[in-house]
Simulated assay, not measured.
Amino acid sequence: CAFPGCSHETEPSTAVVSHLIDFTREHDIPVVFYLELSSGKIAQIISEDSSAKTMQFSSCHNVTKEDFENGATYVSVMEQNLEALKEALY
């Protein structure tokens, strides 16, 4: 979570978003993650104002009905997270 009390129901202040953008730039952070089933709006804003790209990271307790019907399992979701981390770190 990028800021205290963040959830899909709250938005960070402009100052917090500005700080996150500055931090991302200063540390050459290549990826900003957002949680599954979230809008990814804040990650997108940070991405647009830095060189970072956005990627989904799953908490592994939410899947869409479509993903479930297509055979998503805890292990498959964790494997997707692993691939996202590999891409972000290399």
Rank of each mutant, 00 (worst) to 15 (best):
S39R: 06
T64K: 01
K86I: 12
P4A: 01
H27Y: 15
F68G: 12
L20Y: 07
E36T: 07
V77M: 12
V16Y: 03
T10H: 06
E66N: 05
A84M: 07
S38T: 09
Q56I: 12
I45H: 10
T10W: 02
V16I: 11
S13L: 07
P30F: 01
F23K: 07
N62C: 03
H8W: 06
G40W: 00
V75M: 06
K65R: 11
K53V: 15
N70P: 06
L35E: 09
S50L: 00
G5I: 01
E83S: 08
P12A: 00
Y34M: 10
L85I: 10
N62R: 04
L35V: 11
T14E: 13
P12K: 00
F23W: 14
C6P: 04
S59N: 14
V32L: 07
D28H: 12
Y90G: 08
V16N: 05
V16R: 04
F57C: 14
K53W: 01
M78S: 10
N62Q: 09
I46G: 01
K65W: 12
S51P: 10
A52C: 04
E11W: 01
C60A: 15
D67E: 14
T73F: 03
M78N: 11
A15F: 12
H8A: 15
S51R: 13
K53L: 06
E9K: 14
S18N: 15
T54Y: 00
R25Q: 13
E9L: 13
H61I: 00
L85S: 10
N62D: 05
S7E: 11
A43L: 12
Q80I: 00
V31L: 06
P30V: 04
C60D: 02
F33Y: 11
C1T: 06
L35T: 10
T54L: 02
G5F: 00
T24L: 07
K53P: 04
T10G: 09
E36L: 03
E36Q: 12
Y34S: 13
